[in-house]
Amino acid sequence: MSVTYKNALILLITSISIITACKYRSQRPGHGEKPITSFKSVEGITFIEVSRRQKSNGLSYNEYGYHLTPDWRLRFVSSDSAALYSPQKDAYYNFPLALGTDSVFNIAHAFLKMKKISKDSLVFELLEAQGDSIDIHKSRVVMKLYSEPYIKRTGKDLKQLQAASKKDTLFVRGLVNKANADIKKAFAAANPVQLISKNPNLQVTKRKTKPSLLDNKYATDDDYLTPTYDIVIHKAYQDFDYSFEATVDSAGVWHYNKPLVPFLGDDDAQANYIKVSTAIMNTYLKMFMTTIPGETLGMKQASTISVNIKGIKAAK
């Protein structure tokens, strides 16, 4: 997935000054300014996101395995602030709420457009950002939220509401079938590859992002889109350090892809690097680890991972 597309989905924009400093005018002929939007009628009500889908096809997954996870919980506190829930802190934190015209607003670095508002539900569209500007008539993602009172009153199950749709499942199954028939079509697994050491001389650590609403680190997508593992092997045949990309197929078998270091045109050095790191993959990693393939919606699949392997000749 391209950086541009990913940024458009997440909409991490560095400033909210645009929406507070100016009034939006429609670019369509015959339309003028519209009233500033208001959440006065739903202030104090907690809303939970139940779906986040692509506007074009209704799917929450794309061909790269990117999943639009419905994870917002919010309530509008006043005309200029809203509270967002942080699962890491298990608490709500207030953020500035900037209201614009034509149902546009900004919260936590995301520009959104209100499509539906009631005490039972909210529907927003995430607006696309291009540099320091937004197009208020163009969006790719639709967010739907239900209020806590509505969920309790109707007896709806939150996990079922947030679960993948049948359409999502059929789409992902198609991706899985293609990837398992041809590992060149591998895609990111929602539950990435698991590497489990079965030898005390090998330690493996999967890198993990720590999201935080407080310092504007929201996304943990790279944890599954580009999973990276740091592996240390003690009592190795010699000291070494290699980084490479590999694909793990649906049976847990490794397939070497490419080194992750530059060689600046030195073909001999590159060939030797690939030869030795492939040998390490086929010996130490297969002998000292159990590899569990990645999966999405319960389906095992081929997916790509990055590994950094450090060999230490001395014992621990």
Score class of each variant (00 low, 15 high):
P96L: 09
A164E: 07
Q27E: 15
L145I: 02
T154S: 11
Y64V: 01
T46Y: 03
M114I: 06
L127I: 03
A82H: 01
E125K: 01
S26L: 14
G32L: 13
D90E: 12
V104G: 03
P35Q: 13
P96Y: 12
K89N: 12
L145G: 02
K89S: 11
R28D: 12
G32S: 14
R73M: 15
T154L: 10
D135Q: 10
S133Q: 10
S86P: 06
Y146Q: 05
P149H: 03
I134Y: 14
N106K: 00
L158E: 15
Q162D: 05
I151E: 06
L99K: 08
Q88S: 12
R153P: 00
T154A: 10
A83K: 05
V77L: 11
W72S: 05
I45N: 00
C22L: 12
S78G: 06
K113Y: 04
G65C: 05
S103I: 00
Q130S: 14
S139W: 13
S78C: 04
K116E: 13
Y64Q: 01
A129G: 13
L145K: 02
E49R: 03
K23H: 12
K156N: 11
K89E: 15
Y24L: 14
C22I: 04
G58N: 07
S78K: 08
L59G: 02
L126T: 04
H31T: 04
D71F: 02
A82T: 07
K115V: 01
A163K: 08
Y85S: 03
G44M: 04
W72C: 01
K116H: 14
Y24P: 03
L158G: 04
I117T: 05
G30R: 02
E33Q: 04
N94G: 01
C22V: 06
P35A: 13
T101R: 02
V50R: 04
V50M: 09
S56K: 15
L99P: 00
L122V: 09
P29H: 15
L122H: 08
D157W: 01
H31W: 14
A98R: 12
S79C: 04
Y24M: 13
Y92L: 05
E43Q: 14
S38G: 08
N57E: 06
S78A: 10
S38F: 06
T46G: 04
V141D: 00
V142R: 09
K119C: 06
M143W: 07
F105V: 00
E63Y: 09
L158F: 11
S56A: 15
F76K: 01
